[in-house]
């Protein structure tokens, strides 16, 4: 994968099976986000191929492409929320892949499926903020809204890019447990880019280390210690 003259990922050959919980670790710029963007079809590989849920996420267009994308849920660093919409609409946006356009439009006037939304918000502890404008929420609260969006989307593959960066340690733990549950309840998969070695070891069963766009580590989490991971986070000299 190349961006102009910069190679972001090269020679990555990675297979993730159903039910796995995989942590991507590595220093900033190692290629974690690019790998996740390849998986959800936001970017197209310049060389090589990507297969997700038995399909190529970037090649499929139109209705089939949308149906595939609706099965992939992504948590970015809470940047994907629309500040001027109420929380309920931002959570409901998770269903835009399955809702017809007319229902999506009507929901902006009269929120649809509110019980599901409130149930999802309850699991992230924000049930009382459902009708507030999203821009009034703090960074950590917005990150939890992004997780609630995934809860109503019910994806088979959960991709998470630093999903806990704005949360305090206790909340971060619960957020990851929630994402793991979400994937596991449906027999699906979690792939998360994480910075905190503690979180990696507690919530994932496989660790993939990236450095300079290459896979340098791929081992079960069980045999690893925080010290092993610390090396990976160091920026290359």
């Amino acid at each position: 994968m190349r961006y102009g003259g910069t190679t972001a990922l090269a020679g990555v050959d990675l297979t993730v099976g159903p039910g796995e919980r995989v942590a991507l670790v590595g220093a900033s710029g190692a290629g974690k986000s690019t790998l996740l963007e390849l998986a959800n079809g936001s970017v197209t590989p310049t060389a090589g191929s990507v297969r997700v849920l038995d399909a190529d996420p970037s090649a499929r267009s139109g209705r089939a492409g949308r149906r595939l994308r609706a099965r992939i849920g992504t948590v970015h660093q809470h940047l994907e929320l629309v500040g001027s919409l109420r929380v309920v609409h931002n959570v409901n946006a998770g269903r835009l892949g399955t809702w017809p356009a007319a229902r999506a439009a009507w929901s902006l006037l009269r929120p649809q499926g509110v019980p599901d939304v409130v149930a999802a918000l309850e699991r992230v502890g924000l049930a009382d903020r459902a009708f507030e404008r999203t821009e009034r929420l703090s960074g950590g609260q917005r990150q939890r809204v992004a997780i609630a969006r995934l809860l109503v989307q019910q994806p088979d593959l959960v991709l998470a890019d630093e999903p806990a960066s704005a949360l305090d340690p206790a909340l971060a733990d619960r957020a990851l447990a929630l994402l793991g549950d979400l994937a596991r309840d449906r027999g699906g998969t979690l792939v998360a880019a994480l910075h905190d070695p503690g979180l990696v070891l507690r919530h994932c069963d496989r660790v993939v280390g990236l450095a300079d766009g290459r896979v340098v580590l791929d081992r079960p989490a069980a045999g690893l210690s925080p010290a092993d991971l610390a090396d990976l986070y160091e920026a290359p000299a």
């Binding site: 959800n40 079809g41 936001s42 492409g65 949308r66 149906r67 595939l68 994308r69 609706a70 099965r71 992939i72 849920g73 992504t74 970015h76 940047l79 994907e80 929320l81 629309v82 001027s84 919409l85 609409h89 946006a93 998770g94 835009l96 892949g97 399955t98 809702w99 356009a101 999506a104 439009a105 902006l108 989307q153 994806p155």
Partner: peptide
Amino acid sequence: RPRAALAALGARPVGAWLYGVLP
């Protein structure tokens, strides 16, 4: 970015415009 995120989760163009641009 919000609009791109909606497209990535499978929203049709009208939906992405309604939720990501209009507000």
